[in-house]
Nucleic acid binder design. Sequence first.
DNA 1: CGACCCTGCGCG
DNA 2: AAAGCGCGCAGGGTCG
Length: 563
Amino acid sequence: MYQLVAPAGTDRVVVTVLDRVGTPRGPSRTLTLPAFRRYVVENESSGPRWVWEDTARIYPELLRHSIRVARCHDLRLSHVILRNSSLTAQSDIRLGEPGPWDTPVPLEQAEASGPALFELVHDGGTDAGGTPLRQLEEFLLQLRAVAECAEPGRLRLLLAAESAGALIAAEMTHAGLPWRVDIHHDLLTQELGPRVAPGLRPERLESLAARIRVELGDSRVNPDSPTELLRALQKAGLPVTSTRAWALRELEHPVIEPLLLYKKLSRLLSANGWVWMESWITNGRFHPEYLPGGVVTGRWAARGGGALQLPKQIRGAVVADPGWKLVVADAAQLEPRILAALSADLTMAAAGRGTDLYAGIVASGVVETRDHAKVAMLGAMYGATTGESGRLLPRLAKAYPRAIALTETAARAGERGEIVTTRLGRSSPPPGAAWAAAQAKAYDPVATRLDESRARSQARDWGRFTRNFIVQGTAAEWALCWMAEIRKELRALAPEGDELFSTPHLVFFLHDEVMVHTPEGLADRVESIVTAAAATAGRLLFADFPVDFMLTTATVDTYAAAP
DNA sequence: CGACCCTGCGCG
DNA sequence: AAAGCGCGCAGGGTCG
């Protein structure tokens, strides 16, 4: 059963009950927001799938009133997938001209309350029963596209997982990540010195800057300016063409040590200093905005606060509430395991069974060290051709021909400008017009050497993108299924009380890693749930193919203590 | 002054 | 100009 929800004006919502194939089962009802909330609560027990345009817009309104739903269908996110998927290439949704669903209204920045989130216009008219047609017609197109494609099961799972991700993202934003500003403050003070006014350098940075100037024999150079710094380094006789840390590390000179430290600390100050703390932490919680589907591959992005880049340096400020714990779990060697399963490479899957996959590769005698195994695998998935990674690749290819063939096939497809598709049906975007033009130019009779090499280089670039897309994208699908399963089981474990987040709940997600904030007494159960969910996700994507998705899990008081 | 690009670095 | 993918953000620098 579906419940279609659409805004009507700024303070009303139209709800329509739809049957399995999307036919309205009666007239729609227009509800005020309070009536809508009651409606959701009353109907949730019958297990509907709520169909709405944009979870990020409508669900926070429910969460603010401590209302959660189990399942939804996010029309906006689903549209993007179906519009691009090779599995729905023949569908009307794919063949139609681009429309309003292809240029979604961006979500306003502000955490603005209530009605602002409903300012979508009721623009598509209604049918005789009052059903909003723009949303209904889109939903019908989507249902048809899935039902008529060759492998509806995959897309159905993908859309459900993507939509569950949207619910989780909104819930995590709402709940926030537990953050101790006192600890954060102490940490900053210890590293940088006492806080000073914005624009000034704290003591520690100031003295490092002074040392840098002395060592360079330049009394005015500003280490924050790459241009000035580069010039000063060259003047001091150092053979550098950039001021990147990795390049400086190669050099031997008294300025290097203070300079590297300066860069480290100045990064801490600008990215996660006091200003950051004051703009992003409220009432002991970090509330970043997650963007499901924000990356072409299907990974999440985040906006504001750099939520997906929390440096290890400050993870000590993430601390469970008194009487609570953090259960942190990380999928070990996720992408290579995904590659093994995608390519049905039994040998590679066996190397990772019950053990660290890289250690397993070493144990199989393919390479000598774990580090070699890792760099070779990453190189295979990213398309490295030179260096250590390039040298080791042939050995991987010999040991795991199926896995390596899959990456090579994906790369060749990209080089030809073709698209590739993940396990569940998310397809890569086609290369842009500039790319195609560059390729065409190389075949022109008057093409220059430069034209040809540029075209070749761009073709290889795109090949590396598609090579990685298929693995990264499928890993993202696995992670969505993992998280959706965790969420479902956590809700079954402990029914919610009056307080929305008084029971175990997800508070953080980072591509292949999740964090659950849980009352201490339930931590063991939560660990089991997280572990079992990984196996479930593996079966959802790869049925009975024998690949392990191993986790590193830890129950800790602070994120800094997680492995 | 804002809009934009570049450099550099954090995360997976 | 880091070999090799995907991101976001801050600060410097330039342009209109």
